[in-house]
Design a protein around this nucleic acid. Structure first.
Lengths: 239, 239
DNA sequence: GATTGTAAGATTGTCAACAATCAGTCTCAC
DNA sequence: GTGAGACTGATTGTTGACAATCTTACAATC
């Protein structure tokens, strides 16, 4: 029977930020849409002060854009933005893997445990996909990658990754209305988990990058497919 | 005569955040110190609202820590925190170099121009150090590394690096009262700039890590030296 | 003496009102 | 017809007051 955990107290502004983050990521507020303080405060039943504080948080997370005296808007990520998000995401995951696999044992250095966790998530993801629950599968996919980064045991790396992952979800909203997958995506998750458990970094990283695909090529293909929103089977879709 | 640059309008909260950031980084407010809203707002001649917004910004940057209903405090970085900061800093610089050198040409891919800029900064840093202006030298050292990361042309990487660099400065405050250097630090800066210009990534990265030194070893030595604040000549001190 | 309950003071969190800014529209002079 | 200036309404930015929370000190009880 360990020590009781302190109750985590949240200010209203933190709670509102969480709510807004969820709404934005769910697409309730679309790209470029302005969040009107007065209207939003009214509908949330709070005053504008905490709402402003909440929105400021999301501005710093990259989900909202604030223009002084004009208002706060949901970001509208350009293709360059998306490429940047994908680049930083890959860099952070790569750094995590180097740390985890590099033998630094900086706190999350247990490769076998990480591999097991990733495998369990892969199984649940596979099951969700087979059952047609693509939204659930998408969430598990994000959890897979977050687990990988968290395994490096770096608070700041994980924190940064969290904000980039939020932006990644915005990218994916932009890329398409929902999550579609190919069968070998699941195979790749299992494979990557296995490699994390025991392979050298020189083997893991190429596999990670293959898993991500080439962001520029993805965007190019989507541009060509623009009239028809249904992606063809060749496309990589992952987060 | 190009187009006139739009005047950048800053809200009071942004300006206050900048002022506070500077004060914290200058050591005006020490580790663990509480920033009292009423008192600080009075001395800055503003109301608490914008001050709260400003402090929230710095909380998200990692310079302040907010405890609900207790107050906002300057962070007191533990040794583990410092190790984490150094790890993430190195990872970001490494990602920047891989991008810059990897031939992606993602926007900042001009190696020669970057090398020239870094060399110019190295010369100014060397001159400042020889002239005894260690604070100026320290600033230029930070600018050197920021220039390196900015050369990767990734907005999010640069933004993340900026926050980590602010924390790095707090670490250095913690490590000692001021900046001391060894002569071969300047040599390393020149060398690294040269490598950035033309060497393969496998040559540059080990040099970068040698330049940083081993953070854990630095902290260990400082622990041993604790009664005497004067570091010995063997120590690496850089940012 | 140890523990619990209560009150006071200090500080933070939120609210509503006023101030400031901007974009769009209208009017007037040339 | 055009451009400049004034006006208006919408919205954000800031302020000062009140509400809420926490810590400390003191009193009461066992």
């Amino acid at each position: 029977m360990g020590a009781p955990r302190p109750i985590e107290k949240l200010t209203l502004s933190v709670q509102v930020a969480e709510r807004l983050r969820g709404d934005i990521l769910a697409g309730t507020h679309g790209p470029g849409e302005q969040l009107h303080e007065v209207e939003l405060a009214l509908s949330l039943g709070i005053s504008r002060g905490p709402l402003r504080e909440a929105m400021q948080r999301l501005v710093q997370e990259g989900l909202l854009k604030s223009i002084p005296h004009r208002g706060v808007f949901v970001v509208d990520l350009s293709e360059d933005d998306m490429l940047d998000v994908f680049f930083v995401r890959a860099s952070l995951e790569e750094a995590a893997i180097r740390r985890l696999v590099g033998g630094d044992d900086g706190g999350g250095g247990d490769r076998a445990a990480t591999a097991r966790r990733l495998t369990v998530i892969s199984e649940r993801m596979d099951r969700a996909m087979r059952g047609g629950d693509h939204a659930r599968g998408g969430d598990l996919d994000l959890e897979y990658h977050r687990t990988l980064v968290d395994a490096a045991g770096s608070l700041r790396l994980s924190r940064t990754y969290a904000t980039v992952q939020a932006e990644t979800r915005l990218c994916l909203h932009r890329l398409m209305g929902g999550y579609r997958s190919r069968d070998d995506l699941a195979v790749e998750h299992f494979r990557l988990a296995e490699l994390i458990g025991s392979a050298p970094v020189e083997v893991i990283l190429p596999e990670l990058h293959r898993h991500f695909g080439d962001p520029a090529a993805i965007l190019r293909r989507l541009r060509q497919d623009a009239p028809d929103a249904a992606p063809d089977a060749e496309q990589r879709q992952d987060r």
